[in-house]
């Protein structure tokens, strides 16, 4: 957890009792809320609520990977999404990571097959997941 945060992020803590004005400015209505920003000051993702240490780590890596994907750092995004699917099995982040792994691979290569492979993996491992539903249109992609 510490290594993930310090290697990849500049960490900031905003305390409600000392900097409560920033809660309103950034539309934070409940805590804990963790937000991920880029170096241009743009917020990419946020999540609210308590997670186990392993789920928290997986969620931070997943959302960091999605931010890197938006910044077109596809190789890093793919590496991190693979890490979530392999090293954080059993965490809540895995189905979404499988979905976005296909997306990142497609954006990187313009080959649509990873989208379909992601759907197949989701159907096999997480048939009831919302992310399996979201990936359903990719069944039209031939392998």
């Amino acid at each position: 957890m510490v290594k993930v945060v310090t290697d990849w992020f500049i960490p900031v803590r905003i305390s409600g009792d000392k900097q409560g004005d920033l809660f309103g400015k950034h539309l934070v209505t409940w805590t804990p809320t963790i937000t991920i920003w880029d170096g241009e000051g743009r917020e990419h993702y946020r999540f609210t609520g308590f997670l186990t240490p392993e789920d928290l780590c997986a969620r931070i890596i997943l959302d960091g990977a999605k931010a890197e994907m938006a910044l077109k750092n596809y190789d890093l995004a793919i590496k991190c999404l693979n890490d979530v699917t392999k090293k954080y099995k059993g965490t809540c982040a895995v189905p979404e990571a499988i979905f976005y792994l296909g997306v990142a691979q497609y954006l990187s290569s313009h080959n649509p097959k990873p989208l379909r492979e992601g759907l197949d993996s989701l159907r096999k491992e997480f048939p009831q997941s919302e992310w399996t539903l979201r990936a359903k249109p990719y069944e039209l992609i031939n392998l």
Binding site: P11, R13, I14, S15, T35, I36, D38
Partner: peptide, 30 residues
């Protein structure tokens, strides 16, 4: 041990220099 800053603006500037992302934890103590 994580060394937490308390300024989003400073963190964003540092993130740009070091090509990193910023993680902001909004919390209520106690």
């Amino acid at each position: 041990m994580i060394s937490w800053g308390d300024s989003i603006e400073k963190a964003v500037k540092k993130a740009k220099e070091e090509k990193k992302l910023v993680l902001v934890d909004f919390f209520n103590p106690g």
